[in-house]
Design a protein around this nucleic acid. Structure first.
Lengths: 203, 203
DNA sequence: AATTGACAATATGGGCATAATTTGTCTATT
DNA sequence: AATAGACAAATTATGCCCATATTGTCAATT
């Protein structure tokens, strides 16, 4: 569907797509601060250093902009998370740290009080996409835990890798609500990882 | 301060205090469903099967009723939790299950959409009481974990009993937000306990 | 100790007109 | 490809009035 121009650059990424990505990053910042309802196209345009009409040149309307923002954000979050999980030569704990940083930690402390309508808007405009992507994230974490040998370590306790992954997600969710800053979150979640990976520590 | 009447009963609990406790239990149900703002004294009175004036006979006003409700609820939650942690002849996992049931699980699924102002009201009318009690809960859990020998098991991983306790609290917080029913919460938290207690399982 | 009925003072919610903002779409221009 | 200016339509915020609900406190009663 996308009009594939010939302006492909060294990286293999069309210039227009990286431009679009810049706009979406700016939009994410504004949506996170003000929520869907209280975010105006003008505010997004100013945050992205473009004119309001420049926004409409890339996105049909506010709904379209929001859909694209969520898709881009959650898509790159999942991609970054999977990349972190696959890093060669890193111990499990470090890979988990990177994955959960990409998936949640990166966004802790960036949401304002009016942002409580974001989930509702996302569900209304994108259906089960967020939920689906979250399931894929859990899948990826569970697979990594299994390959790292945690399945055997937790077998006696009757806990599956999937349950370990879901438990880490639940902990991250809780910390997201109780931590004010990103640093606080990362530090507390590092503990959660040490706890989960404890059976791997040779003593 | 309390006018100690001579109507002490078999249990050693004055009849008026158990009456008061009944009123507070009813009040908790209403506050949980409707929040502080949208709860009326009339609603509480009807839920407790007393007249509205009967309520004012026990509590000076709505603020007083709310303060007493929060104090009673959080106080008995902490007491029940400590009791569960001290149960003789129960394994650690079972004691933790009881403690977190008394502290959080018991209340999962009982809060309505309008209840989001409860924390704010509690902070405004009771200061740091809720926060303080939560700290005491963490202390109690941490002490139990230490006595159960988890400190030694997690020493190699560099995790203290207090960090284990705080991590369990974070997980409980996350599950509270993602679980719709109490059963769902208890089941998921049982997994969290198995993970935390895994080092104790002899294999 | 608790209930009923009643009361004034206050708080809250709905409706409505108006002002202000925002949206989406034009043009003309660089 | 992007900007600026302008525009009508739609949405949202604001102030006000009024009806209703709620609060806190009476006195009378069981």
């Amino acid at each position: 569907m996308s009009t594939a121009k010939k302006s492909a650059v060294s990286e293999g990424v069309p210039a227009e797509d990286s431009r679009r990505a810049q706009l979406l990053e700016s939009a994410l910042g504004v949506f996170a601060r003000f929520g869907y309802r209280k975010t105006s196209m003008d505010e997004v345009a100013r945050a992205a250093n473009v004119s309001r009409q420049g926004l409409y040149l890339h996105f049909a309307n506010k709904e379209d902009l929001f859909r694209a923002t969520v898709r881009h954000t959650i898509g790159s979050s999942l991609a970054d998370a999977k990349r972190a999980l696959a890093v060669e030569g890193a111990v499990l704990a470090e890979r988990l740290r990177g994955a959960f940083h990409a998936w949640v930690g990166r966004y802790v402390g960036r949401f304002g009080a009016d942002a409580s309508d974001l989930m509702q808007a996302a569900e209304g405009l994108l259906g089960t996409l967020v939920f689906d992507q979250e399931k894929l994230f859990v899948d990826a974490v569970a697979a990594t835990l299994r390959e790292a040998g945690l399945a055997a370590a937790y077998k006696p306790a009757g806990v599956t890798p999937r349950q370990l992954a879901e438990n880490l997600c639940a902990t991250a969710r809780g910390l997201k609500h109780s931590c004010d800053t990103q640093e606080e979150f990362e530090e507390a979640f590092a503990v959660a990882i040490r706890i989960t990976c404890a059976p791997l520590v040779q003593d």
